[in-house]
Design a protein around this nucleic acid. Structure first.
Lengths: 251, 251
DNA sequence: CGAGCAATTGAACGCTGTCAACCCGAGTGG
DNA sequence: CCACTCGGGTTGACAGCGTTCAATTGCTCG
C-alpha cells in the first residue's frame, strides 16, 4: 500500500534519454539539474502511488505503464478522472494534500522528484515553473474536455472518443498504424468512461458489429474505419475548425 | 458579441479594495503593479467574454455577476464546465488559444489584465506566477471533483452538491445565513448539472417536498435541513475525514 | 482438475430525457 | 385598462438508454 517496490538513483544521461514531454521542453541546464534529483520507482499493478488526502511527497512522471487518477465517494463509488500514460506528469506543487488517489493500473515505472527539491529549483530555473504551469493548464483543458464528453455523450460515443484519444497519443509516439493497445482492465475502462463493465463490453461489440473496429483480444483493437470512428466521437466532416483538427485521425 | 459594453482604467486603491481571492494573497508591491495594468470591463447577460478557440487577449477576475465557462459539441450540445463567481480568476497564460467559451450568465463587471503585460510581471514578481499556478491547480481539483459528481451521482444528488457548494461559497464571503441566491436561469443550471431544465425543476421540488429546502422563488432557496442536504450531497456523518470537512455546512 | 477472475451475453427494471400542455409574470400595444 | 404575446418555469405521460441482476464462457493459476 503506497510502498514502492524499488527506488533507485539514476544518472543524468539516463534521465535525459527518457521520452518525457516535460523534460524535453526545457533547457539542457535545467534538465541536468532535474536529473540530479530524479529517482526511479517501480510499482506493481494495484499499488498506490499517492494516496488521496495524504501529504504529497513527490512529483513524478510516468516512464512505463499506466497510472489511474481517481476519486472515491463515501459510499465507495469511484471514478477515474485521468489516465496517466508514459511521459505524463503528476503530483502537485505548492500544496500539501492531494485530492485524488493515484494508483498503478498496470505494472509501472515512474521518475520521481522530491517535492521540496523540485520546488527549490523554481528560483534558479523559472522555466521549470513555466513548464509546470503549462502542464497543469493542459491538464485542466483535458479535464474540462472529458467532463463535457461524460456529461453529453452516450456510452458508445464516449468509447469512440476514448479510442480516438488513445490512438492520437499512440501516433504522437510514432507507434505503428491502426492497432490500439489498451493495457487496462474493463473495470478501469468503465470507471474512466463513467459506466459499467457490461456497457463497455456492449459498446465495444457494437462498434465491432458496425465494422468500425475489430476486437483482436481484450486489450487490442484494430481501427477499420477511421472516418466513422471519428464521426461517432463527435467529429463533423464539414469544415476544418478547431474541433476537427483535434479529432482528425492520421490515417 | 464579445464587445464589452465598457472598459475603463481603475486606480490601485480601487483595485485593492476588490474582494479578490487572487489579489489578496500577494504582496502589496505586486498588488500595486497589478492594479496599474487593471481595466474594468462590463458585460451584459449573454455577451461573450472570451470566445472558444480564439486568441486570449486578457486575464480577468470577476467583480460582480456570474460567468459561465462552457464547451459546445459539433451538434450543438453544450456543457457548462465551471461557473465563475465574484473573485474567481479566468483566462490562461503561456497559451494563445482558449478551449472553452466564457460568457456572461448575468450582467457582470470584470477586472481584466492585458495578457502580455500580466505575463511580463512574472519576471519581477515570481509570487504572481506562484499564485497563478496555485489557482490553476485549484481549478483542476474543482474540475476533477465536479467530473466525478457528474459521472457518479444522480440528478438530485448533484443538485444537493451544487447547493452545498454555493452555500459554502456564500458563507466564505460572510453572506448571511441559510438563504442561497442563484442568479442564473434553469437552463444554465441544467447545463452545469449535466441534465435538463425539467429534471432541474423536479429535483428542486423533490428536495422541497422532503423538507430539505424551501423554494422562495425561482432564484432563491432556503436550507431547512443542513444535515440531510449534506448527506444527499455525499457527506457521511460518521468520521471527520477530508470529505466530511469539505461538505460540512456551517450552520 | 477445480477455483477464481475477467469478459461476455441475456433479461428486466428504473432513472431521466423527450414531448406536450399548462401556468405565470413581464412587456407591449390597442 | 385590458388583451395579447412571449419566454421561463412547472408538471404529467411515456419511452429509451443504461444499470442491475443473473447466467455462461474462457482463461490463468494453484
Amino acid at each position: 500500500m503506497g510502498i514502492p517496490t524499488g527506488s533507485t538513483a539514476i544518472n543524468p544521461a539516463t534521465c535525459i534519454s527518457f521520452n518525457c514531454a516535460f523534460c524535453n521542453a526545457i533547457s539542457p541546464e535545467a534538465k541536468h539539474e532535474l536529473a540530479r534529483i530524479a529517482r526511479v520507482k517501480v510499482f506493481r499493478a494495484g499499488e498506490t502511488v499517492l494516496a488521496e488526502a495524504e501529504k504529497i511527497d513527490f512529483i513524478g512522471s510516468v516512464i512505463t505503464g499506466v497510472l489511474r487518477v481517481q476519486k472515491t465517494l463515501h459510499d465507495g463509488r469511484t471514478q477515474i478522472v485521468s489516465l496517466l500514460l508514459p511521459s505524463d506528469m503528476f503530483g502537485r506543487v505548492f500544496a500539501n494534500t492531494l485530492h485524488v488517489a493515484i494508483e498503478a493500473a498496470t505494472d509501472a515505472t515512474v521518475c520521481t522528484y522530491d517535492r521540496g527539491k523540485f520546488e527549490a529549483l523554481f528560483e534558479r530555473f523559472p522555466e521549470i515553473e513555466h513548464r509546470v504551469l503549462t502542464c497543469v493548464s493542459d491538464e485542466l483543458d483535458a479535464a474540462q474536455e472529458w467532463m463535457t464528453l461524460l456529461a453529453l455523450q452516450s456510452v458508445t460515443e464516449r468509447m469512440a472518443s476514448f479510442l480516438v484519444i488513445l490512438r492520437n497519443r499512440a501516433v504522437s509516439q510514432s507507434n505503428s498504424a491502426l492497432t490500439i493497445q489498451i493495457p487496462i482492465s474493463r473495470k478501469d475502462m468503465a470507471a474512466y468512461l463513467g459506466t459499467t463493465v457490461e456497457s463497455v463490453s456492449r459498446s465495444l461489440h457494437e462498434l465491432a458489429n458496425r465494422g468500425v473496429i475489430r476486437i483482436v483480444d481484450a486489450q487490442n483493437f484494430e481501427i477499420r474505419d477511421c472516418r466513422r470512428l471519428a464521426e461517432i466521437a463527435g467529429y463533423t466532416p464539414d469544415g476544418e475548425d478547431e474541433g476537427a483538427r483535434k479529432y482528425r485521425l492520421n490515417c
